[in-house]
Design a protein around this nucleic acid. Structure first.
Lengths: 141, 141
DNA sequence: ATCAAATTTGTAATCATTACAATTTTATAT
DNA sequence: ATATAAAATTGTAATGATTACAAATTTGAT
């Protein structure tokens, strides 16, 4: 079963010129919905593209973000994480295992409030932190 | 007109032993609702406490955060920002001037959704990004 | 095939934050 | 008060994510 995701067209739709590196990175994000860091993406692709530079990963992710092809998450105070899903949803980070999960959420009301205050909203980030069901059942500390 | 904020009691209420440095830092946060960074707090207090160390500022802010006396904001991907207001509210960061504003918000419904997914929620952060009314009226670029 | 522009790469720099050991201050027991 | 232990503060060095930058490579257009 092959992926129905057309990385090439996805990049073109966001005015990004495709390249081997860019296609690999966007595909990685499509296949790994774990909200990976730049370093994790680099580690996941270095075998496939042995010449890959970490700078390219950072440059490319910044480009994707500027073109609104991906989200940039600051739920972690150490690293920025990335998400190919740009639809309206929230994120939950487990303080025990560190995993970041998706949580369905509608944030229209908050945008409306911001508008009432004269703010023009370009991005909305809802970050929840606590303990996921696995860690809650068998706490590791 | 003097402040009605009792920094001493505020620290005691959060099981924090008061000290000159801790009182100065919590007072700074009470008086500066700009969501300052550790570095900004240090710069704001070094004249008043010439022996102050930046490490102490970081240690103290981490202590305050652990004791739930302040919020730790990751709306900025460069620095962590701090907020003495621990009540339920959102934050808006202007992508032009960089200022971080408070926005009233109620996030109970999202907490409920997270609970349905088996998550135990300890913290909620709603970050909006865009352009504030000042920057919107006279764009700087 | 040639030249210019865009992309990628590797290395070094930046900068926020933390680690750690030494010093100073505070609290407690005698 | 004084000695002593514990806690807090300090300064310096280390860490680690990200960016700056210049060189090398690739791509695209003539």
């Amino acid at each position: 079963m092959k992926s129905d995701f057309n990385a090439y067209n996805y990049l073109l739709q966001h005015d990004i010129k495709p390249s081997v590196q860019r296609l690999a990175i966007i595909n990685y994000l499509y296949e790994h919905r774990t909200h990976p860091t730049a370093d994790e993406i680099y580690a996941g692709l270095i075998d496939q593209i042995p010449t890959l530079s970490k700078t390219t990963v950072y440059n490319t992710l910044n480009l994707f973000y500027q073109q609104a092809a991906i989200l940039s998450l600051t739920i972690d105070d150490k690293n920025v994480r990335f998400d190919i899903d740009t639809s309206d949803h929230a994120h939950f980070k487990c303080l025990n295992c560190g995993k970041v999960f998706d949580v369905p959420a509608v944030l229209d009301s908050v945008t409306a409030i911001a508008l009432e205050h004269g703010f023009i909203v370009a991005e909305k980030h809802l970050y929840l932190k606590g303990y996921c069901s696995s860690c809650n059942e068998s706490p590791n500390k």
